[in-house]
């Protein structure tokens, strides 16, 4: 391959990537705008709340409790190298609330919810159910996307809060049962150390990750190709994109909260 054609391929790839970003951004703007414009579909919103929020609780809880427990063990082992074992409650609390809670919940939502939204909408597309919605005077963005994005915006921060609490509880259980920490002192240290902005940053990250997860699921579902392969590609692509965007957004938001 000549240098010119190599440069051409590189340019084409960059242009395609920028075009994809543009399409996703326009889709996201459209989706968010439909949240505020009637008609509204409360039944679909209720179902989305249940699917995204309530039914995600078990996986979020289990992920958080094991992570909190492992984090306590790691901090204890690491801290022991310079006689700082006592910082376990503070580091578990800050690690879970500011970083691990939102990120792990975000990734779990990407795995569980984004994939499910993408597969469901993509299947609707290949079986002409989306076309059927249009012929029945129902806007697919209002009926399918807006309720899911709004539900994710509301429920994922709540899931993050639950994940933070359960993660801290996991660290507390390991620290008090295995590492000899005093339960009352552990709780006092945790509460004293956490600041309001730690909790705010956790919830803001949760809201952002929820919107990313729902929008990527809807976008990939709506732009799915034909047949089973199209549905498979849409599902895989949605989870990959959501996970990468959640991690990138986490980096950006962490930077923003650091600078405040």
């Amino acid at each position: 391959m000549s240098p010119i054609s190599l440069l051409g391929e590189l340019g084409r790839a960059i242009l395609n990537m920028l075009a994809a970003f543009g399409r996703v951004a326009l889709f996201a703007l459209d989706a968010v705008s439909h949240i505020f414009r009637p008609p509204f579909y409360p039944r679909e919103f209720g179902i989305a709340l249940l699917n995204i929020g309530w039914l995600s609780l078990p996986v979020v809880g289990l992920t958080a409790i094991f992570t909190g427990g492992a984090l306590a063990l790691q901090i204890y082992a690491g801290g022991a190298r310079f006689n700082a074992e006592a910082v376990v409650p503070q580091i578990v609390a800050i690690g879970m609330v500011r970083e691990l809670g939102p990120v792990l919940v975000g990734l779990m939502i990407a795995a569980r919810v984004t994939s499910s939204i993408a597969a469901e909408i993509a299947t609707m597309k290949v079986t002409e159910q989306i076309d059927a919605l249009v012929t029945l005077s129902t806007h697919p963005m209002k009926y399918l996307t807006a309720p899911r994005v709004l539900a994710a915006l509301i429920t994922v921060p709540a899931l993050v809060a639950v994940g933070d609490i359960i993660g801290i509880a996991g660290g507390y259980t390991v620290a008090t049962q295995n590492l000899g920490f005093n339960p009352a002192a552990y709780l006092k240290n945790t509460v004293d150390f956490l600041e309001a902005r730690d909790i705010v940053s956790s919830l803001v990250k949760g809201a952002a990750f929820g919107v990313i997860a729902a929008i990527m699921g809807c976008y990939y579902g709506m732009s799915s190709g034909r047949g089973a392969q199209g549905v498979g590609r849409a599902t895989k692509g949605s989870v990959e994109a959501a996970a990468v965007l959640i991690l990138a957004a986490n980096f950006v938001l962490t930077g923003v909260f650091f600078s405040l």
Binding site: Q129, A132, V134, L136
Partner: peptide
Amino acid sequence: DRDAFLARFGMLFQGAALFDS
């Protein structure tokens, strides 16, 4: 008006396109 336009139509799709849920 798109809604008024579509309200005049009914359509039977090839695979019926019923909403599974």
